[in-house]
Design a protein around this nucleic acid. Structure first.
Length: 154
DNA sequence: GCCAACGTTGGC
DNA sequence: GCCAACGTTGGC
């Protein structure tokens, strides 16, 4: 059974369009332990909502899927990277990155307000106040509703 | 730019 | 282990 996830990204930094162009990308640079744990749980085939944060059109912008399970995030060993972690050991890497693959971009993003207005989605972790995690689990039902909303919209 | 809500750090 | 200070996230 595939699991469902939501990942946040600032579109100015990396958008669903960037993923579309790249086709797939290593989801690197996550430096939060809980988010890291979720990243390590991801398995090939899992479905991922791609959420745009800190931008004009906040909300779910499209869908990705897990292409391959997490490998050690190379940036943690790259001294020149902002994500370099001098404390991380090569034989016990601290940070992990799955590879995500583009699936589709919604014609129009499913906005945060739209998500908030749906009773069935009120439990979504992305709505919980103060939820700043950039990687979150999503239920199958929530995933399906978001997808339906994206299709219903014109 | 503001600010609330967190996570992390570090002195004790 | 406590907790204040600090940095970051992210909606607005």
């Amino acid at each position: 059974m595939p699991s469902h996830w939501l990942v946040k990204s600032e579109p100015d930094v990396y958008s669903i369009d960037d993923l579309k162009e790249d086709r797939a990308t290593l989801w690197d640079g996550v430096r939060n332990y809980q988010a890291r744990n979720y990243l390590r749980e991801m398995k090939p085939g899992d479905a991922v909502l791609f959420y745009h944060s800190s931008c004009e059109e906040v909300g779910v912008a499209g869908v990705a899927k897990v292409k391959s399970a997490a490998v050690p995030d190379p940036l943690q060993f790259d001294k020149k990277s902002d994500y370099h972690d001098p404390e991380s050991e090569r034989d016990a890497p601290r940070w992990w990155s799955p590879e995500l693959e583009f699936v589709k971009k919604f014609p129009q993003a499913v906005g945060l307000n739209q998500i908030r207005s749906k009773r069935e989605l009120e439990k979504m972790l992305v709505l919980q106040r103060g939820s700043r995690l950039s990687v979150l689990p999503v239920s199958q039902k929530e995933f399906d509703i978001i997808l339906a909303l994206s299709e219903a919209k014109q």
